[in-house]
Computed example of a mutant assay.
Amino acid sequence: MHVSRNLQKNGHSQPLRAMSELLHLDLLKEGKVLLAFSGGVDSTALFHLLLDHGIAFDIAHVNYHTRDTSDTEEQSAIALAEQYSLQCYTHSCRLSGSNFESRARDERYRFFTYLMTKHGYTYLLTAHQLNDRLEWLMMQLCRGSGLPEILGIRSLDTRNGIKILRPLLEHDRESIEAYLYERNISHHLDESNSDERYTRNFFRHRYSAPMMRDYTDAIRRSFRYLEEDSESLLETMNFTVIQELSYAANPSNMRSLIYGIDHFFKSRGYLLSKHDKEALKRGGEHILGRRFTVSIDTHYTFITPYESGVMMDKGFREECRELKISPKLRGYLYGAPHAYSVIRQLKGAPAPLRFD
């Protein structure tokens, strides 16, 4: 059922009026946005803040049927949308097996991507906030990650080809709860948030929550500086897509190269493993997940579907050899003449295709 947390005013450093400050407010006003809505503290606060700012939006809710209240929460989301004449899209799924958090994330983003594409929303909004960002940083530190991975929760991002905004990323959980309390806005509580069998909950209760209580403003500033430093240290790889060929000029340093390739795949819903990233540092050609070919040459990185066992024309094979086109790219390129023509030009081939 809907509940309101019994919060007491505690003189928190971030007053209620500051909750009106949303990141990327100018972008939120472009077209219509889709809010990923669970009905919990954060997404409920963002729902009402969007109303306060007159932002045009609809909501999407995923029911995993993991709790006794799951169906009630879905019906509450539908009723809330109807109350404000908004569209509420719902998706029902039951996931079994291990690694629930990762599979649930993949499931909901498939749903969100479908809605974004079908209905033409400009941005997907998620209600991640400052505590989430600190929890993520701690988990990545314990996995031996670098700066790009540590800053994996960004205020403006892409995934599966859709643009994502996180307007609450500089607000801490305590301020968000205070906003709901002072406005007397009801919301649902997820009992699973107290279950330390989930990795994020373990870090939340043991480490991040105590730190946020004492160092909120300093943590907020640190993330701003880290993001600025990241932007100055990492060069952007801008991939061009021709048919199913994607290519980009190589940056000047290896860290930017691996980050650029990782970001390319992550934006399409494919996560590189630690082994993949280490292998890519050696350059050359690589097969990822038996699905993709990545070829890193002197000037460009090429990514195509992986196709093996293709019978190729002798002239085509010879020209690829002369142009030093990766053997593992050739299976796809043989059936994609336009993409092959682009690579020929990038390789400096002056003559027409020999096998035409």
Rank of each mutant, 00 (worst) to 15 (best):
T158V: 08
E74F: 09
L51P: 02
K314S: 14
L333F: 06
L189M: 15
S267C: 10
S175A: 10
A18I: 06
L86D: 09
S208D: 05
T69K: 11
N253L: 13
A104I: 00
H53F: 11
T293N: 04
I150R: 12
R159K: 12
R354L: 13
Q129V: 08
L141H: 03
F316K: 08
L151Q: 04
D68Y: 07
R159M: 08
N193C: 13
D356C: 14
D262R: 13
Q243T: 05
L156I: 10
H188W: 08
G120K: 01
I78S: 05
D172N: 12
E101A: 15
I242N: 04
E30Y: 14
F355G: 02
R291K: 09
Y334N: 00
Q345S: 14
T304D: 10
P167K: 15
L22T: 01
D132G: 07
D356W: 14
Y84V: 02
K32L: 02
I78Q: 09
E74H: 07
M138L: 12
D313T: 04
N160P: 09
Y306N: 03
I78C: 02
L25E: 10
N99V: 08
A336S: 10
K328V: 14
K277Y: 10
S186R: 15
M254I: 12
A178V: 10
Y181D: 13
Y84D: 03
R154M: 09
G309N: 06
N63V: 11
